[in-house]
Simulated assay, not measured.
Amino acid sequence: MHVAAWRQPETVGRNLPGTPGRGIPSATKLPRMADSSFDIVSKVDHQEAENALNQARKEIEQRYDFKGTGASVEWSGESVLIKASTEERAKAVLDVFQSKLIKRGISLKSLESGEPFASGKEYRIVSTIKDGISSENAKKISKIIRDEGPKGVKSQIQGDELRVQSKSRDDLQEVQRLLKAADLEVDLQFVNYR
Rank of each mutant, 00 (worst) to 15 (best):
139 K>I: 06
79 S>R: 04
135 S>I: 08
93 V>A: 01
142 S>T: 07
130 K>Y: 02
58 K>M: 11
82 I>R: 03
150 P>L: 04
149 G>L: 00
58 K>L: 14
163 R>N: 05
68 G>R: 06
69 T>K: 12
117 F>N: 14
24 I>D: 07
107 S>Y: 01
39 D>C: 10
167 K>H: 12
11 T>C: 14
193 Y>H: 14
180 K>E: 10
12 V>W: 12
117 F>A: 02
22 R>A: 08
75 W>T: 10
43 K>N: 09
179 L>S: 02
7 R>P: 03
142 S>C: 09
19 T>N: 07
183 D>P: 08
66 F>A: 05
185 E>M: 11
48 E>T: 08
109 K>T: 00
60 I>D: 01
78 E>S: 13
41 V>P: 05
71 A>Y: 09
143 K>P: 07
110 S>E: 01
162 L>F: 01
64 Y>F: 15
159 G>Q: 02
85 S>A: 15
141 I>A: 01
181 A>E: 09
1 M>Q: 12
181 A>V: 11
40 I>T: 05
184 L>T: 03
81 L>F: 13
69 T>M: 14
7 R>Y: 04
172 L>T: 04
89 R>W: 13
77 G>Q: 06
47 Q>D: 15
161 E>T: 15
21 G>C: 09
118 A>R: 08
61 E>T: 07
125 I>A: 03
145 I>L: 00
189 Q>W: 11
156 Q>R: 13
89 R>T: 13
85 S>R: 14
119 S>D: 11
182 A>C: 09
184 L>G: 02
68 G>P: 09
59 E>S: 14
177 R>P: 07
37 S>A: 09
89 R>C: 14
54 N>E: 14
2 H>G: 14
187 D>V: 07
151 K>E: 12
11 T>V: 10
5 A>S: 06
105 G>F: 01
145 I>A: 00
125 I>F: 03
171 D>V: 09
45 D>Y: 04
155 S>T: 05
34 A>T: 07
33 M>R: 15
45 D>R: 00
152 G>Q: 05
11 T>K: 13
105 G>S: 00
77 G>Y: 02
188 L>N: 02
8 Q>L: 15
1 M>E: 12
11 T>S: 11
130 K>I: 11
34 A>Y: 11
191 V>L: 06
51 N>Y: 10
176 Q>N: 08
192 N>Q: 03
15 N>R: 08
21 G>W: 02
104 R>P: 02
92 A>C: 09
70 G>N: 04
72 S>M: 05
155 S>Y: 00
64 Y>H: 15
128 T>K: 12
1 M>R: 13
124 R>P: 05
103 K>L: 11
62 Q>Y: 05
8 Q>K: 15
135 S>M: 05
64 Y>W: 15
171 D>F: 01
136 E>G: 11
146 R>L: 09
160 D>F: 03
9 P>T: 02
141 I>Y: 00
66 F>Q: 03
75 W>D: 08
86 T>M: 07
188 L>K: 01
116 P>T: 01
174 E>A: 13
118 A>I: 10
